[in-house]
Structures are given as structure tokens and as C-alpha cells.
């Protein structure tokens, strides 16, 4: 028994492959069978096997449309997606949503509370906080994307190689991952920042490396699960090469939980990046990442709490949206 199995972000990965593989047949429980696909329950009809209604649209496209429709019918999910889309746009074109210069100081307007003119109010130098927030998106979101890129490329590669080839390769790689998991990810990030110096890119790299082990584990678990499924064996039996099996069967079918984790990890990465810049390891002033903005406002909590709290709320909303998207997708997967 390995205790370090669970990656905290993905309780989903603990599923027993045997249980998953069982499917509706062996479980045989009546309610489950009845509640399942209407077509399946039709198997017991008089003709034994009623053929499908030919007028029904079928196939992959219908499947996709059905999933999208289910997702679209969840208002929470739609709001979350729209908010994330908004944040992404601000990261690449902050000017679209504000006319204020994030660096323009106005001593007369210092610590003005939120209003129509200054959506988030102004900071101690009279700079428009909303505008600084949006321009901060650029740095924070880019850092997040770098971190996520590292995690996905390295984690996916490690997980797929480990899970697919098994044996000694798997043993060695997974012991390595175990060791990395033993170092709490924030501390790993701090070590890397110490070594590389401060700034947006070192912080991004540090956070990305911290996420890799969990990502590798989840990917490996999924690949292992799918690898033993009868349809993979059937493909092998049909003469398919290992590469083909990997690319056509294993990867597409392991992708779901991994993608869910990736979304979840995006939120975690944003928090970690904001935390590191909050601690003072991010970009140097006057450029502002989200964490730096919040940190700077701490000194004015008594007189102007919004300077810290509103940007903090913005970060929280972003992460909450990502978590909600991830959760919804996960429910859909099940």
C-alpha cells in the first residue's frame, strides 16, 4: 500500500479500475439498468433487440451536441465560463475594459473609494485600481499559463510513459514522483524561487514544477486504468501497434479526468502565483501582479479596505469559477 497515492486535487482518481470496468452488466442492479440509456433497457423488449429509431440523429456529433446542451442548461457553469473568458481577454487586451493608465498617479485622488469613475477605487498614489487589476491580469495569467504548460507537458509525459510502459521505468519514475510529492509544493516553489531569483517567470516555473508530480500521478492512474480495459486488448488483438493503441485508444480515453484536473490545477496555480507575489517574490514595482496589488493594500486596511479586498475578491472569483467548471465537467464524466 502506498499512502502518498492521493493527489489532493483529484479525489476522482482513486477509483478502482475493476469497479469501473464492471459496467452496467455485472452490476445488474435493476434500477441502474432501468435508469440507464433508454436504448439499453430496450434490449429486453419483445423483439429481443429493438433496432434504433432511424430518424434519431446519432453518432459523435449528436453526442457532442447533447453534452453541450447539458452544460448550457447549467446557469452556474455558463456564468463561470463567461467570467473566465472575460479574465482571459483582459489578460491579453486590458485596454478594452478601462481607459485609465495603470501607472498614472494622481495625488489628489489617493485612496478614493469605489465609484462609477473608479470601479475598484484608487490606491495610495491615486492610481486607478481596476485598471491596475486588469493590467495585472496580463502578468498573472501569463504566469499561470507557463506554469500549466510545464505541468501538462512534463506531467503528461511522465504519467503516460510510466503508466504505458510499466515495469522498471514505471517503478523508477514513480519513486521519483513520490519524492517530489514529499516536498510540499509551495516549499518546492520557494526553493526554486530562491535559486532562480524573483520575477514573474521564476515564480511561474516554480509553481509549474510544484504541480507536475500530482499531474503525473493522475495521468498514470488513468493510463493504467484504460490500458487494461477490454477494448484496448481487443485493439491489440486486431493487430494494432502499441503506438496506435496509445494514440487512438489510451490517450483519448484517459483525457477526461486529466483535463478536469488541469482546470482545477489552473485555479491552484493562480492562488500559488498570487501567494508568491503577495510574499514579495514576484515582479518588481511599479508593475503589479494580483498578489502584489493585494499585498500593497495591506497597509491601508483600516482606512481603505477595498484596496486589498476588491482585488482579492477578483482572484477568488476567478479561482471559484475554475473550480466550478472543473466540478461540473467531473460530474459529466461520471
Amino acid at each position: 500500500m502506498t499512502v502518498s497515492v492521493a493527489h489532493i486535487a483529484s479525489p476522482a482518481t482513486g477509483t478502482d479500475p475493476a469497479a469501473t470496468g464492471a459496467g452496467p452488466v455485472t452490476s445488474g442492479a435493476e434500477p441502474a439498468a432501468t435508469g440507464a440509456e433508454p436504448v439499453t433497457s430496450g434490449a429486453g423488449s419483445a423483439a429481443g433487440e429493438a433496432l434504433l429509431d432511424e430518424s434519431q440523429p446519432g453518432g459523435r456529433r449528436a453526442n457532442l451536441i447533447a453534452s453541450l446542451r447539458t452544460l448550457g442548461s447549467r446557469p452556474g457553469f455558463v456564468v463561470a465560463v463567461l467570467f473566465i473568458a472575460f479574465v482571459m481577454v483582459t489578460a491579453f487586451a486590458p485596454g478594452l475594459f478601462t481607459s485609465h493608465d495603470p501607472y498614472a498617479t494622481a495625488p489628489a485622488d489617493r485612496l478614493v473609494s469605489p465609484s462609477g469613475g473608479h470601479l475598484f477605487g484608487t490606491d495610495e498614489l491615486g492610481r486607478d485600481l481596476w485598471s491596475r487589476m486588469l493590467h495585472g491580469s496580463a502578468l498573472t495569467i501569463k504566469a499561470t499559463l507557463i506554469a500549466l504548460g510545464i505541468a501538462i507537458v512534463a506531467g503528461l509525459a511522465l504519467g503516460v510513459i510510466s503508466g504505458f510502459f510499466g515495469g522498471l521505468v514505471d517503478a523508477v519514475l514513480m519513486r521519483g514522483v513520490d519524492v517530489l510529492l514529499a516536498i510540499p509544493s509551495l516549499l518546492m516553489a520557494l526553493s526554486i524561487v530562491t535559486a532562480l531569483g524573483f520575477g514573474t517567470v521564476p515564480v511561474a516555473v516554480a509553481v509549474g514544477v510544484g504541480i507536475v508530480p500530482g499531474f503525473a500521478r493522475t495521468t498514470r492512474a488513468e493510463v493504467l486504468r484504460v490500458k487494461t480495459l477490454p477494448y484496448v486488448e481487443a485493439a491489440r488483438g486486431g493487430g494494432a501497434s502499441w503506438l496506435r493503441v496509445l494514440l487512438r485508444h489510451v490517450l483519448p480515453n484517459s483525457w477526461g479526468p486529466v483535463a478536469v484536473l488541469a482546470v482545477l490545477d489552473t485555479g491552484i496555480a493562480i492562488i500559488a502565483i498570487a501567494s508568491l507575489s503577495f510574499l514579495g517574490f514576484g515582479a518588481a514595482p511599479p508593475t503589479a501582479e494580483w498578489g502584489t496589488l493585494i499585498s500593497a493594500g495591506r497597509n491601508y486596511l483600516v482606512t481603505a479596505p477595498w484596496v486589498s479586498l476588491l482585488p482579492g475578491l477578483f482572484v477568488a472569483m476567478t479561482v471559484l469559477s475554475l473550480n466550478h467548471i472543473s466540478k461540473t465537467l467531473q460530474e459529466l464524466e461520471r
Partner: peptide, 10 residues
């Protein structure tokens, strides 16, 4: 295979 629910790639 035994189980047609698992032997076809979904």
C-alpha cells in the same frame, strides 16, 4: 470478449 459493454472503445 465476454463483456460487450467494455470491449468497444466508447
Amino acid at each position: 470478449h465476454q463483456n460487450p459493454y467494455a470491449s468497444l472503445d466508447p
